[in-house]
Design a protein around this nucleic acid. Sequence first.
DNA 1: CTGAGCCTACCTTCCGGTCGGTAGACTAGA
DNA 2: TCTAGTCTACCGACCGGAAGGTAGGCTCAG
Lengths: 195, 195
Amino acid sequence: MPEGGSRRLILDMAARLLRSGGYHQTTLREIAEAVGIRKASLYHHFASKEEIVEAVVNDGVRFVHEAVAAALAGAVQAGPRRRLEAAIAAHLSALHGHGDYTSAAIKVFTFGSGPTPESVRLSRRLYEDVWRGLVDELQEAGAIAPGRSPEALRLFLLGAMNGSIDWYRPGRFDVGALAREFAALVAPDGGEHPR
Amino acid sequence: MPEGGSRRLILDMAARLLRSGGYHQTTLREIAEAVGIRKASLYHHFASKEEIVEAVVNDGVRFVHEAVAAALAGAVQAGPRRRLEAAIAAHLSALHGHGDYTSAAIKVFTFGSGPTPESVRLSRRLYEDVWRGLVDELQEAGAIAPGRSPEALRLFLLGAMNGSIDWYRPGRFDVGALAREFAALVAPDGGEHPR
DNA sequence: CTGAGCCTACCTTCCGGTCGGTAGACTAGA
DNA sequence: TCTAGTCTACCGACCGGAAGGTAGGCTCAG
């Protein structure tokens, strides 16, 4: 293999711990123990704790970004309502699938002390733009009830989806069904709303 | 006066710090310093850090619970749609008003280590029941589009509202307008949905 | 023989929590 | 009224441990 997978393994374990514990509860000792090395050895791959967390969060955002973009690309000929549903399903799948990166990225919204790294703010903003564009598209297609604020609608939707990490349990809910419910709230079934 | 306000003052400062920093970032030294006493003195009023956080969270949940219950009682003769809007506005006001307790209660969803105290789980569940009842009421009144899952709808609503602590800024948004947007999503304007 | 990768050992700082003590207000018995 | 006891609220000093991070050395493949 071209490069040791140590770095990836460290990030995998860090993502798992960050997902359940957030920034402050996750310690370098825990990460090292989960990887199977000593804590000092982490510093051969990363310069600091913050650098590890930053990498995990960026990967998590990138992961969900790519998943949603792929879902939208795969439903390019479908109606806006189906595209919304596909995007929601992709976002929820990234959150509740086997990867811990995206959940960790949501859980670690604010970095411990000091400001949020610029790279994180950038990747987050780029992902938000996907949803901004999708909401615009829905509005132009008349799939949204007239008079609704697109920005509020986007914030509600993202908030509700990300809040699902606190209550979603596989088995109790199905991601596809949930996506249908959420999409129906944002863009009601009752047909197009003429402008 | 019957009792010194020291206890309340400690909880006020703790709520403020917990709101912005969560459980792990908030230290007893910070709380004590904000109050103006030494850290050891905190133990004359509370037995542990967890007891302080528990009191703040319970007060925060109780606060929003009472606010929403009062709003619903004050709109008892209104239609279900107006009652929903009033409840949402009350919840958002409790979150973004001057009290830090409710925001802290949302931020401190999981306690540091060990399980969530029973009293917190109880008060949270009691508050959730208010929304369960309200959603049922909306459904019986036919204000909700047919086919929607009441549980998913409730979780969507709570998640979207609580997520607003991450993006709400006074001035950029108005609580009343926001509540109207919210209510319109859950119970569309277009009149009653016959069953 | 070099350097990537990992180690042991240690540093400083801060965490939640404990200890014994004290200043002051209040109460009660003589 | 004096005074001994008691209670509340607070304090400085300290504890064991754990946090993130550093220094320096071992090992082994290329």
